[in-house]
Nucleic acid binder design. Structure first.
Lengths: 203, 203
DNA sequence: ATCCCCATGTAATTTGTTACATGATTGA
DNA sequence: TCAATCATGTAACAAATTACATGGGGAT
């Protein structure tokens, strides 16, 4: 009966929110996270199943078990009236965070200490991941744009904008990392390779 | 003597990397995280101090205590030869992650369930944070661009590109969230408010 | 044959955040 | 006088990731 945390948009709160749209099992919710939230929020079974158990214990969702042939029973969760109220409260009180934790950028900061092949590999891998992400998001938008609510369309567009910008930046600026060989030892290279500044366009 | 983790670019590894540029105390390193990595990687004292202790125990850094007047002794860390080798190994083996966890976007996904004032407030707050970030990053680049190594310039530009894209997307698309009033109850609104599609430009 | 999908969950581990604990100096 | 900066660290806590544990059905 106690309310859910009104501090963070954690996995528990998001499961509740997704259940406000339609009933689902933990397995289904994982799929939703992977398609809807893929580019900005991830959650595994290890977070989702305990979250659902907590929500059920708090009376915010109800569970009905659907027998399956040859598989574990499907446990389908439905949001309750208290659950809707609790989620509405959460939406009105939570101060949402927006955190990027990029080991990639942290690593590239030290590009001067890497050997060139390694550096190139890192950049290419990242560029490939971004291309995949763009493909995925375009496919997603083509498949759901018609019926999706404004919020869903907005976040899909937001993800696309960010990923596109990242891909573009890498494409246009990677060569600034490829100039100087990694001089093993030499400290202050006062050689003026000052010909490359990051490409930018004005808004 | 054992090597540091070759899996993640964690706080420990990044401290080691920063120490490969110059000696520093935990306090100094926190400052570096805040200025250099501010927009893509954060670390608090609670991570940094234990990281330094671990690095020292592993022989990758050495610590000398500098007495202070009226303050705790300053503990200045220097990287050792083993430390440099270990960091080089890390740079060559770690597969870096790039994780965005945006409670903001997750929340906006449910925009249709929010009351309009709340929604507007969220959007304005986020836009303000982004403007602050842009200001910060521009100031940072103006102050250090001349002497900074290519890696540092690249990541600063990358951050700027991402944040600028986010700010722009919000500015150009927020109105698509402000159309429909939050209809408390009505399920399938088949009303065709299909006049707003996300603004995008081709690359 | 082998791999992926379905379907659930627990337990251990890792990681990081926050609060606690202390306290002088400097500038507004 | 008040806030910020300097300066260190520990302990408790929260959260999420990963590994473990199980197993049938369907497609290639």
């Amino acid at each position: 009966m106690q309310a859910i945390g009104t501090e963070f948009m954690d996995v528990k709160t998001l499961c509740l929110g997704l259940l406000s749209f339609e009933d689902a099992s933990g397995y289904d919710l994982k799929k939703h996270f992977e398609s809807l939230f893929r580019h900005f929020y991830s959650a595994g079974y290890g977070s989702i199943y305990p979250a659902l158990a907590d929500l059920a214990e708090a009376g915010l969702v109800r569970c009905r078990e659907v027998p399956q042939q040859g598989r574990p029973d499907r446990k389908v969760y439905s949001i309750t009236a208290e659950g809707r109220a609790s989620f509405a409260t959460a939406l009105n009180s939570i101060q949402p965070q927006h955190k990027l934790r990029s080991e990639f950028l942290a690593m590239i900061y030290f590009a001067d200490l890497m050997n060139p092949e390694r550096l190139r590999k890192l950049m290419e891998d990242r560029a490939a991941e971004l291309s995949d992400a763009i493909e995925h998001i375009e496919a997603f938008r083509r498949s759901t744009d018609k019926t999706a609510p404004a919020g869903a369309r907005f976040v899909a567009g937001f993800s696309a904008a960010l990923i596109t910008a990242a891909e573009k930046y890498i494409r246009e600026n990677k060569q600034m990392l490829y100039r100087k060989a990694p001089d093993a030892g030499g400290l202050k290279n006062a050689t003026k390779t000052r010909d490359t500044a990051p490409v930018e366009e004005r808004a």
